[in-house]
């Protein structure tokens, strides 16, 4: 009987990681890289997001927001000649009710005011299909669907008397990575707004409800067309202080 002893190839991975590590450090010694701080400010038309606070949408639905969590991932510095510098492992879970998550520090970043910052709302296909991940992507964060694998890119829950649902709840779990319903969306910002190595990204939740009548649409829980359409609205929520 002849079996092949199969052993996973670890060595190569580690060499690659080591080289990457080395490159980052040698890069740091040559360029004057800086930390880029990103402040995330969530609001509802300028009002801060607080539990138990009431807001009124454009369509006159009164709402409370009880949960607001979403992924911002794959930060890229793009130079004027369209050269992309991806920031390794830049995947962040933002929770509007957890202050610690509202400041992202991209350390040792090489950028100029003429550059652009690219980032994604949601998690890319590769990370959706590569098994159990760590850090903010850990499946214990409650942002991974169990019966149908995939990250929830954007999760908002709350209450409204307009919702004829159990406890008047609305729940929007927007995700899905498979074509044609990929719900990840890319944002592009000019870095000219940076002051003291700080950039503020504003997220106005009110815009999510601008084209939404909560009495008729108050629940998205699976990938599909509805999630995809809702994802199309997400970039409109984001802006930077110019």
């Amino acid at each position: 009987m002849s079996y092949i002893n199969k052993q996973p190839k670890f060595k190569l991975d580690y060499i690659v990681m080591f080289l990457l590590f080395f490159t980052i450090f040698s890069g740091a010694s040559q360029n004057s890289n800086k930390d880029l701080s990103i402040n995330i400010v969530t609001s509802f038309d300028g009002e801060s997001i607080e539990k138990d606070k009431w807001y009124v949408t454009k369509n006159n639905d009164s709402i409370q927001i009880t949960k607001l969590r979403f992924y911002l991932t794959n930060f890229v510095i793009q130079t004027e000649d369209k050269k992309n510098d991806s920031i390794f492992n830049s995947n962040y879970l933002i929770d509007a009710f957890n202050k610690e998550t509202l400041k992202i520090i991209l350390s040792n970043t090489n950028y100029n005011k003429e550059d652009k910052l690219l980032l994604s709302i949601g998690v890319n296909e590769h990370l959706n299909t590569s098994g159990a991940n760590s850090g903010d992507l850990d499946p214990s964060k409650g942002m991974f669907w169990s019966w149908q694998s995939g990250y929830i890119n954007f999760k908002m829950e709350g209450k409204s008397p307009s919702c004829k649902t159990r406890k008047n709840k609305f729940q929007f779990h927007i995700g899905g990575y498979q074509k044609p319903f990929e719900s990840i969306r890319v944002l592009t910002f000019k870095l000219s707004a940076i002051k003291n190595n700080e950039l503020t990204i504003n997220i106005n939740i009110a815009h999510f409800f601008d084209a939404l009548q909560l009495s008729s649409q108050n629940q998205i829980m699976i990938p599909g067309k509805e999630a995809n359409d809702a994802a199309d609205r997400l970039p409109q929520l984001f802006s930077i202080d110019e």
Partner: peptide, 28 residues
Amino acid sequence: GGVNHLELQALAPISSENEMDETLANVV
């Protein structure tokens, strides 16, 4: 075929209300 990766398979029975009815965060 709803689960796409062996490493994430256990999340389904752990969080199914008819099976283990638990959250992974609580297990951790």
